[in-house]
Design a protein around this nucleic acid. Structure first.
Lengths: 345, 345
DNA sequence: TTTCCATTTCGAAAAATTTTCGACCCCCGC
DNA sequence: GCGGGGGTCGAAAATTTTTCGAAATGGAAA
């Protein structure tokens, strides 16, 4: 029959979706005056019927889904490595990646929809309830990487086993003979940081090691925090023999602070980082650190984002990938005198 | 009059060209059944009247042009900082940035065009004549950041004053009293590397300092090159007292190689890097380096790309931003005995 | 030279798509 | 309850694309 042979038109989609042709046209063109629910249903049907906009028909181009990746602050090694994972997976799965700094101007989510974005991946971004509402109104799915907040069932997130990582790092230091171990971490509010700190505490308590209040310092995930925090720690009457840093940048700052004080790493001070960014490999000395599979996490986030963009179900709104301790040369047994002092203390 | 106020339609063009609306539509859509002569005339009128295809009207291919940024290899600090400059300028100028690894599949340029990209910015990418031809065929403008090849009038490029940077770095070391200075650089073919090396040579010759062949080593812009190259240099019968590295990663590798041999930086070996990425600030000790204004270079590349996308003229097909020596703590006068040895040698 | 056929070019009409604009509804504040 | 504002949606108008056939063109054969 000729009716079946002819290519699908907006009218076909409109009939199937039970809406007007005008509405379908608006979905195709990313107009804003379409309810999220309607938009999703129509997009679904458009995909099923392999609809191609007229301009794309003769070029034969199929529109690849576009994912917006937003980050906050600087493009650090951490962000860069995660981003690389996202880019690689996107290339593999035929998606495009738009990168931008998070800006929450009014209607930002809706603007993203009308610019053709199918989902948002947020790295190191803070999302308030207002942002989530805006996102929900626009119908744009969100995947948060390494969420700063507690997993909320309304947002999908990808993280790493931070507690286990904190545990492993601290146990490693304990097994080397350290007892005076400090934790120099990131923002007190960030759950990833909390989990690492609790892993540290759990390991310390299991070993019966004392954790003076002065040994647990909050800060930012920056080099400066490492510099300042280490200066504070090393100025204590009973300075730690090892520092577990909340991330690699902090750890590098700690190493630098130790160096300027004439302390050798690892002989006089052991340092453990977190993340295993390229910084860790290039630190002097190369840093013992807890590896987060950043590239894999980025890839996982992208896959989830694409599933959500296709309105498919995902198994769980939060997944965690395994961390792993990578031992390099920034950790060693404490030297005799400090160990003795530690035992006395 | 209302006729003048409303946007131009195909009908307007058709009237002006003396053809039917259908014919104009065919020209717009690149159909084949239009005589070359007719097509040219219609295209001319379309340009004059600033005609926009309906899909492009609101999707903002114009309001928010999309620029594709391609890089090759890993997303290093160098790439990340440049990218950040691009992103910031794009946000300011209302453009979107798609990031991907360079993949030169058949018709890649045409695919980019049909995906709506308005220009390409290449970081650390290699472009052959074939690529340039493909690009020219597709009509997609290209801006190369820190080009590996000699400026070709067919490609637009943004670089830095590499020669001046190499000169400044080497003079700095000479003024500290060093005479045995080695250059450990990147790929021999890369013009940015060549310029740095020639700057080094120029400074050395001006001072009458000897440059043994073994003192100039090529390599990659990587940490491993620094490690291996420094090991080779320090194993010489007359090892250098200072190393000028082709970039920061190499420099950090050099520092690590020195450290593992028990040499102190800067007391026993001075090291100068190039780029001033975040690595330089976080190196132990913080690295004296030649700053390339990476963010500004990214911003400049984006602005040029946007001008080209609008088919506007640019002043020059190659611009260079100034480099600047940043003195930190990885450089110091050579210690007495080595200096004496140097004078004797 | 004429005829015939294939091909190219173009436009009128039909089909498809986009845009405008008003109706409707819901929620919120007064 | 009573506007008012914003969000949704569709009918109709405007615009664009596609189809299809007519006209022009250009040989090749009669």
């Amino acid at each position: 029959m000729r009716q079946n042979a002819r290519r699908t038109t907006l009218a076909d989609i409109a009939r199937a979706a039970g809406v007007s042709v005008a509405t379908v046209s608006k979905v195709v063109n990313g107009r804003s005056d379409v309810a999220p629910h309607t938009r999703t249903r129509v997009q679904e049907l458009l995909r099923q019927h392999h609809y191609l906009a007229p301009v794309l028909r003769h070029t034969g181009a199929v529109r690849t889904p576009t994912i917006e990746v937003q980050f906050k602050g600087g493009l650090t090694s951490y962000v860069a490595e995660t981003l690389e994972g996202i880019i690689d997976s996107a290339a593999e799965l035929g998606a495009s990646v738009v990168i931008s700094k998070a800006s929450h101007a009014p209607h930002w989510a809706r603007d993203l929809v009308s610019a053709g974005r199918r989902a948002v991946i947020a790295i190191t971004s803070v999302y308030t309830t207002a942002h989530l509402n805006e996102l929900a109104r626009s119908g744009l799915p969100l995947v948060v990487l390494d969420p700063l907040h507690l997993p909320d069932s309304r947002v999908n997130s990808v993280g790493a086993t931070n507690f286990a990582g904190g545990l492993a790092a601290t146990r490693h230091l304990l097994s080397l003979g350290h007892r005076r171990i400090a934790y120099l971490g990131g923002p007190a509010m960030a759950v990833c940081n909390q989990a690492r700190r609790h892993g540290y505490r759990a390991a310390m308590e299991a070993e019966g090691a004392r954790v003076p209040d002065a040994y647990v310092l909050p800060g930012e995930f920056t080099y400066e925090t490492g510099l300042l925090g280490a200066t504070a720690l090393l100025g204590l009457r009973e300075p730690p023999t090892a520092v577990f840093a909340g991330n690699d940048e902090i750890a590098v700052g700690v190493i630098e602070a130790a160096r300027t004080r004439g302390l050798r790493v690892p002989e006089d001070l052991s340092v453990v980082g977190f993340d295993d960014t390229n910084l860790a490999q290039m630190a002097a000395p190369p840093l013992t650190t807890v590896r987060q599979p950043l590239q894999e996490m980025g890839g996982a986030a992208l896959r989830i984002a694409l599933r959500l963009a296709d309105a498919e179900k995902v198994e769980s709104h939060h997944i965690e990938l395994a961390t792993e301790l990578v031992v390099r040369v920034s950790t060693a047994p404490p030297c005799e005198e400090t160990r003795e002092a530690s035992v006395r203390g």
